[in-house]
Design a protein around this nucleic acid. Sequence first.
DNA 1: ACGGCCGGTGAGAACGTTCTCTCACTCCGC
DNA 2: GCGGAGTGAGAGAACGTTCTCACCGGCCGT
Lengths: 375, 375
Amino acid sequence: MPAGTGAAPGRRRPTVADVAREAGVSVATAGRALGNYGRVRDDLREQVQAAAQRLGYSPNAVARSMRSGGTRSIGFVGADISNPYFATAMRGICDVAREQGYEPILANSDDRLEVERAAVSVLLDKQVEGIVVAPTSVTDVAHLERAKELGVPIVLLDRHTGALEADSVVIDNEAAAYQAVAHLLGLGHRRVGLLACVDPAEGPELVTRTGTGRLSVRGAARPSIDRIRGYLAAVDDHRATSSAELIQYTPLSDAAQAQRRAEALLTQPQPPTAVFATDNVTTQGLFMAARRRGLAIPEDVSLVGFDDLDWTTLVDPPLTVVAQSPLDMGRAAAARLFERIKGDDRPAERIVLPTELVVRSSTAEHSHGVRAHSG
Amino acid sequence: MPAGTGAAPGRRRPTVADVAREAGVSVATAGRALGNYGRVRDDLREQVQAAAQRLGYSPNAVARSMRSGGTRSIGFVGADISNPYFATAMRGICDVAREQGYEPILANSDDRLEVERAAVSVLLDKQVEGIVVAPTSVTDVAHLERAKELGVPIVLLDRHTGALEADSVVIDNEAAAYQAVAHLLGLGHRRVGLLACVDPAEGPELVTRTGTGRLSVRGAARPSIDRIRGYLAAVDDHRATSSAELIQYTPLSDAAQAQRRAEALLTQPQPPTAVFATDNVTTQGLFMAARRRGLAIPEDVSLVGFDDLDWTTLVDPPLTVVAQSPLDMGRAAAARLFERIKGDDRPAERIVLPTELVVRSSTAEHSHGVRAHSG
DNA sequence: ACGGCCGGTGAGAACGTTCTCTCACTCCGC
DNA sequence: GCGGAGTGAGAGAACGTTCTCACCGGCCGT
């Protein structure tokens, strides 16, 4: 028999029609037997399945999607998959998707709005059934609105926005930052620095002094902004030093730049005795800057970082950090997405996952600092 | 005008037929105007495009794929996207794919063959045009063979196999390991330990003593096996101590287990004075084990790790490592894949990317060791 | 015994796009 | 003025699957 498992590359895939012919039944019956829908006599079913086996038939998911509308694909749009935060979140999304029999399509936005827009557009054209997105902008959400209009549910990861009626999976960034900074202030530090992950051009405009002399931060609920807000609130509540010189800004995903900004922060005339970094890149930059400047941690300067990557316990001293779980966040986002895909139409929900301040050895009492303010 | 940008969620997407009706032309003409094929009169083209704009038309990629056969999707199957190696490789793949107008679909295999098989099968059903895979097995490749038969090119990442005629992007694992171990031996170490990433049940069976009294490793060209081979060759060439007690095995992606094995290695009666770890997980376990046991690096024990993750320069002392570039490997794999997709049918090629031994401060001369063997 | 019901089958439509084929019309040269 | 070439539009097929519908036979109830 010449037909069979020959290895001609690019051979046309057998179709239901081929199987039907081989089994001597109609296309409809073959379809029913293979697709497990409708009713087929048992002997015929086996006959069809045997024929399918012989021909090495497997269904064409594209044709199936075309007919039935469902692609069993979802999309994930994040800034950068090589960032451990997104990589781990993606892992969580993949796991849940696989349980549901779905495959995720990945797109990097590099935190650029036009790239994100294009990515979402392509995903919609590919008829994904839902999208998890860590949005670049929390104001410019027309492309996400369009997805919703087309009936494609959106779940926001890491960032929440009031501009879009969509589920989101976030942490309480303000509270987490507040807790971290309050920890430092509780140790007696009065000059606490901040290394924030915001475009440097944008930063100084965001933080302004109000009429009452306090610093405040404008802007929508991006994680870094909320973390700045938490920092300012803690400093304010504890009547610690509030000064623009204690704040440095650095763009996302630029470790070298983060380190330079950190060095600037640490080497000013009246340097902070403790610093809080708002994400894993700035944390790394901060640690390296302290190292390079020969500062002893925590004797010369206390450090609190963000994200509990595994290297934080490998360094000396182990770092005090705010820990979140991107794996759980990815899982939760995907789980919520599948509820929506299955037709859940409750009002949009904001799912807030817990963070934990993990106190290690990079923070200590400020020995020669101002005494706690007397009442 | 009631029709327009109403926000009824789940509204049917407009099709070419809708646009044609709106523009008052035939479906064929609308298709030509929108798809930029065939010839259309300029005024009609503009008319159609205006109608499309009005209706918010965008093409259904599934239907397009169905008709034309190309899905503009590729697949990537790796053990675990949350592993920095795979995450970075995926980034490289994504970048090249985007340049080509393709989207990658991601699947984790967890290094389990049956999961990998299922993933490849689903990808094929989804009609991906090519697959990059970091295969779990280098012998059981029937599922990859099937892809090739269907005309879907395969590029192997990280692992090469003679069992399949397919391009591969790898590093020279044996040479890299040899270089690392030779570096240690050159520093005067005679008892060099190995922490290898192989299933512990499998490990002892792989490494056996030959008739000439040498240790040798069986098995196909998996990275860890080749690295063991490089280790053995270096030890052998330099007539250093070759002993089963100097080798410990640990399964993939289990940092805790890796640490335990590393401690066992370091605390035996006659411990090694230097250790080589074969991948990033074992490197981390090794470092932590040395730390926990209070061993000074490099005074008490020299360490060489694998993979230059950013934490290797954050720890004290900075680690000597074998560096590879998963980003470049991902890029190269994707680039090769697209050549294949475009019809390149040259014989399969093995693309070997360079590695670099980055000497930092975790390795030093063995001070009180045995003198170099006299001739 | 006959009508209706039901399990089981086949023919064919439908999904939305691309592509082939046909045909009408225009313009040019002879 | 007429034929041929060339341009551009429309009708319809095709991709592979699922689903609707019609049909056919047997069985049951009356």
